[in-house]
Design a protein around this nucleic acid. Structure first.
Lengths: 256, 256
DNA sequence: CGCGACTTTGATCGCCGTCAACAATCGTGG
DNA sequence: CCACGATTGTTGACGGCGATCAAAGTCGCG
């Protein structure tokens, strides 16, 4: 299905931040994110605040078109990435060419960590719509001491994965979709957007793949959800009416 | 099912390394692991080699009895752990009291990373047999620069999780069990043990839980595997005869 | 020896994957 | 703006995989 497209090194495409809007060179040579629309500021700003002085941590900033890859599985890597605007999906390719979607990312999310200790990425990541990302080179991180923000990034990624594993192992179709919507709602809220009106940037096929079920089952389950008055779906817009019921169907979600 | 047992802070129980065998105080105050039976030496030694001087990174070493917890979900944390001998399982507790097993750990594995950026653990970890672990306090790590070993730790954990997600989302009972045995075989090999004779330290219930299936299905699938001559199971000993067939049934495994 | 925990095996049933057909939507070019 | 095919989404019918219930067998341990 998804063929191995010709690989394009990200570095060749990313334009220097100074040539783009959204970043400002500070007096001491650091950079500051002015465009990320994330509650509490984006990770970069958090790092800056923590250390009380600026770092040249964000090397590049880039706008991706729909279906444009950040990296492919197998690509060399030397950076992690932060979403500024838009959304992406990361997936692993199987021998038979099928893909398994591992996660979706929206504004404020950090991705690409699974390649940090290796020579290459094990997953691919592609934009689902027009998307802006920041690139954070690892060699800069390596010069710095470990801080809380960095640890948080890692544990958040692990927590997400563990919730996904729990969901895949123990929940049926209803629970999976309900969990999915609860998640998307929280993420929407986190990005200073409505929590009861969600804009899905991915196809039903992607949702089904991510949740480990058939497209048809997604469709049918969605219909039953709508018929029960719990939510309404038009195209890729979801309007949630009954969070309580949705939460009950979703079941447990591990949050500390 | 699994009730929330009274929580016991690990720190209170761990005895100082100097009071135990297996560690040697070096001239400059660092410690060196002499007991870990891991190919290529354990993480601690790798860290030492990388930095060319010793660190007091391993604060404690402890022998756990079967069913003894390292930590519970919700516990405060300030460390990650490395398995020296034996095996453990980590799991999350759901509201209804059921547990979902996230991973099994054997000699050389690092666990507890999912709590690094948080104030507490989101999962619990318990010994499946008599087990020895090393405790690596985070505040010591925080004093140091990031190195390759640390990154490797993280990406290895993420890779494991992603493989598990792929498995749960796309494989049937046969594929899951075959993948499980292939994994256990590799881990056994990694610990300088036989790759075709595996010693399972977990119950069928744990295996079933981990793989997201019913105990009965595990039993039945095991029988079919045996009847086909692919492997032999007696108690908790598994003897693998046909790796090739097992690999085919297991299907894809994402390794870079 | 006997009790409890673990495991195996059988029978039944329901969820959900698959196949098939259709409807809606998007994108592109005339 | 419409026409057209391609992509995406919906709905129905059917069957199989695996969960569940039930019961017997095995192992471990006091």
């Amino acid at each position: 299905m998804t063929m191995q497209l010709p690989k394009i090194a990200v570095d060749n495409n990313i334009t220097p931040i100074t040539k783009r809007t959204g970043f400002v060179q500070t007096a001491i040579g650091g950079t500051q994110c002015r465009t990320c629309n994330i509650r509490g500021g984006c990770l970069i700003e958090q790092i800056k605040q923590t250390h009380e002085h600026s770092f040249q941590v964000v090397k590049n900033r880039k706008e991706l078109s729909k279906d444009e890859h950040v990296f492919y599985g197998g690509d060399d890597t030397n950076a992690i990435y932060i979403v500024s605007r838009g959304s992406l999906k990361s997936y692993m390719l199987m021998e038979n060419g099928e893909e398994q979607i591992l996660d979706f990312y929206t504004a404020g999310d950090v991705f690409g960590l699974d390649a940090m200790g290796r020579h290459c990425h094990i997953s691919s990541t592609v934009a689902l719509e027009t998307t802006v990302i920041c690139k954070l080179p690892l060699h800069e991180l390596q010069q710095r001491v470990l801080d809380q923000e960095f640890f948080s990034m890692i544990s958040e990624n692990l927590l997400r994965d563990h919730n996904q594993m729990l969901m895949l192992a123990r929940k049926g179709a209803d629970g999976r979709l309900a969990s999915f919507f609860m998640n998307m709602s929280q993420r929407s809220k986190k990005s200073n957007q409505s929590e009861d009106e969600i804009n899905l940037s991915m196809t039903r096929r992607d949702i089904a793949n991510y949740l480990g079920m058939a497209i048809e089952t997604v469709s049918r389950t969605l219909r039953r959800f709508q018929d029960s008055g719990m939510l309404e779906v038009t195209q890729r817009k979801v309007k949630i009416y009954d969070f309580e019921k949705l939460q009950i169907i979703a079941g447990t979600q591990a949050i500390c």
